[in-house]
């Protein structure tokens, strides 16, 4: 399976680059949405590792995204003037990885003390951490405080966004289907039983958190260089909820379903643009009805029943 997956990854990256090569031909509005979709796939698939496969409930994904986004943006803003133009892709790559790494460090800092908690406690603490991260950026002058960062170069192309989306799907997919990764699912299914089988639940939970946060950080960097503007308000509680809904809609722990949900939920606001007022009402009703009628997700069929918390 592994070599097959690797081949798919290469094909996806090549396809993304090919499409990106012709991107000048496309309508800029549609291209922008396509990049949004790529970024949202990264966010949803990485959160799915934490919330779906490992069964922890994190409401702080936007916080990790903010860490990655601000780090990457600050890095390029500081260095773009002194670096030669040919080094730009390299600079961008380093910025993204740096953002991802710092987000992973934040994930570790959040994960180690809090993952002893379960279910709704964990949800509220991750929410709290997300808010603290947001307040930090909102009050730090170096990150533009409440006005945010502006003038970030527009470096995120279709190729960048979708290559990283493919990479995220690849890494999470391989990780979960590896021998090591079975541990995530074991922790999800029954923490006590997993512990009795010699799996250290805390270790797996922290691993899931750190990897999830890393990709959220990358997505944040891509987002920053796509919108060219970052404000702390964009990373509030609502953003985390958006990502959580993608995971739920797709079915917790179902990568394919989560990707479809990320695509649909990115397109939905654009389609409903005419009903801007009632858009969010429909969205919230969708969550309630979905939870009552189909808690296992829209695109989940057969095999595994809805996971228990």
């Amino acid at each position: 399976m592994n070599s097959g997956a690797k081949r798919w990854l290469l094909v996806a990256v090549a396809a993304a680059m090919a499409v990106s090569y012709f991107s000048a031909q496309f309508n800029r509005y549609y291209l922008g949405i396509a990049i949004d979709i790529g970024i949202n796939i990264i966010l949803a698939v990485s959160l799915n590792l934490i919330n779906g496969h490992t069964g922890q409930f994190s409401l702080g994904h936007a916080g990790f995204m903010a860490v990655g986004g601000y780090t990457a943006a600050k890095f390029t803003l500081e260095l773009q003037t002194i670096s030669p133009p040919w080094a730009q892709p390299l600079l961008f790559l380093v910025a993204l990885l740096l953002g991802g790494l710092l987000a992973a460090v934040a994930g570790l800092a959040v994960g180690v003390p809090t993952l002893r908690l379960r279910g709704d406690y964990l949800a509220i603490v991750t929410l709290g951490f997300g808010e603290i991260i947001r307040v930090f950026f909102q009050t730090t002058e170096a990150f533009g405080a409440a006005t945010g960062l502006t003038g970030i170069p527009h470096w995120t192309t279709f190729a960048w966004a979708w290559s990283f989306a493919a990479l995220t799907v690849f890494v999470v997919g391989c990780l979960v289907s590896s021998t090591y990764g079975r541990g995530f699912i074991a922790v999800h299914d029954d923490e006590v039983a997993a512990g009795a089988m010699g799996i250290n639940p805390v270790r797996y939970k922290v691993t899931a958190f750190v990897i999830g946060a890393f990709f959220a950080g990358i997505a944040g960097g891509l987002y920053a260089h796509h919108k060219q503007f970052l404000s702390p308000g964009g990373f509030d509680f609502m953003k985390s909820i958006d990502i959580v809904v993608m995971v739920i809609l797709g079915g917790m722990g179902r990568t394919a379903g989560v990707i479809v949900a990320a695509v649909l939920l990115t397109l939905l606001p654009e389609v409903l643009r005419g009903f801007a007022d009632s858009r969010m009402i429909i969205y919230s009703l969708l969550i309630i009805v979905l939870m009552i009628a189909r808690p296992q997700g829209l695109f989940t069929f057969g095999r595994k029943a809805a996971g228990k918390a």
Binding site: I241, V244, S284, I287, I288, P295, A306, G307, A309
Partner: peptide, 13 residues
């Protein structure tokens, strides 16, 4: 139902 389902519903409400 599982607690998580109720929690998400509460967020929806």
């Amino acid at each position: 139902r599982p607690k998580l389902t109720v929690l998400i519903t509460a967020i929806g409400v």
